[in-house]
Every structure is written in structure tokens, then in C-alpha cells.
């Protein structure tokens, strides 16, 4: 039954709409305004529900079929994992070190083979940005384990 992309997406959207509507109906009252905070969300929820049901019956557009080879999906997921690790360690280890490692490893993983320039860029860019932010703009980036 769910053989078309549109139908699958439509089901997901219907679920989102229902969850959003349930949450809208549970918003607390504020009695001193003529239109409370739940009116617009409820309307939006029903609109999404309606549109999602319409989408269910729309045929997939034929001309723009995109397919992604399996090997590429692996690459994307790995980069995604790198990004998540980077973010997790961002405040703990600090901006300079995590950023340097991230640039170094990701560039290498994606096929950049010039080690010397890779290392130079990985170290200099985070340092320059860090100094620019903290010294000139006076905007703090996480220092982490570095002393400055």
C-alpha cells in the first residue's frame, strides 16, 4: 500500500500533525485575551492534516527521481557521526582542538591527501578564528582544556 514516496511521507506528516494538534489542545488557558495561544496552532495542525491527506493521493513526480548509491550513504553517515562527536566535545575539550581535529580528520576522510597543507590549515584556521573572536570581537568561544 505504501509503495510511493508521497504516501510514506504523508503518513509521517499526518503523525506530526496529530501529535502537534494533541499538544495544542493541551495548552493552558490564559483567560484575559480574546484569542488565546492555542488558536493559531490548532488551525495550523488542521491545515497540515488536510494537506498531508491530499499528498497521500498525489502521484510521485516522475521526472526528478534521485537515487543515492549505498557507498555514498555510508560516507554521509560517517561525516554526520564526525559532526556529532565534534559538537559533543566542543565545549568539553574546547574550540581550537576539536575544530582542528575535525577539519583534519574530515578532510582526510573525504579524500584530501595533502598532509602538510591539511595540518597547516587545520591548526591555523581554528587559531585565527579563536583569536579573532576572543581578542578582537570579545566574543567567547569555549576554551576547554587549553589555558587561554
Amino acid at each position: 500500500m505504501l509503495n510511493s514516496k508521497n504516501k510514506k511521507v504523508s503518513i509521517i506528516l499526518i503523525i506530526i500533525a496529530v501529535v502537534y494538534l494533541l499538544a495544542s489542545f493541551r495548552l493552558p488557558d490564559y483567560p484575559y485575551v480574546p484569542v488565546d495561544s492555542d488558536m493559531v496552532p490548532k488551525t495550523l495542525g488542521f491545515i497540515l492534516l488536510f494537506l498531508s491527506i491530499l499528498l497521500f493521493f498525489v502521484k510521485d513526480d516522475a521526472e526528478k527521481k534521485q537515487s543515492i548509491p549505498k557507498s555514498e550513504i555510508k560516507v554521509i553517515l560517517t561525516v554526520l557521526a564526525f559532526v556529532l562527536i565534534y559538537i559533543l566535545l566542543f565545549e568539553i575539550i574546547g574550540f581550537v582542538i576539536t575544530t582542528a581535529l575535525f577539519i583534519l580528520i574530515t578532510s582526510w576522510f573525504l579524500g584530501y591527501k595533502g598532509w602538510v597543507s591539511n595540518i597547516i590549515v587545520s591548526i591555523s584556521i581554528p587559531l585565527v578564528i579563536y583569536l579573532l573572536f576572543t581578542q578582537f570581537l570579545k566574543v567567547q568561544l569555549p576554551a576547554g582544556i587549553l589555558p587561554f
Binding site: 561525516v79 559532526v83 575535525f102 577539519i103 574530515t106 578532510s107 579524500g111 581554528p126 578564528i129 568561544l141
Partner: peptide, 13 residues
């Protein structure tokens, strides 16, 4: 490859 990692870093900053 380098450009990609730099764009990600810029977005994060």
C-alpha cells in the same frame, strides 16, 4: 574535501 569541512565549521561557529 577541505571546503566541506570548513563549511561545516563555519556553520557551527
Amino acid at each position: 574535501p577541505m571546503l566541506i569541512s570548513l563549511i561545516i565549521v563555519f556553520c557551527i561557529i
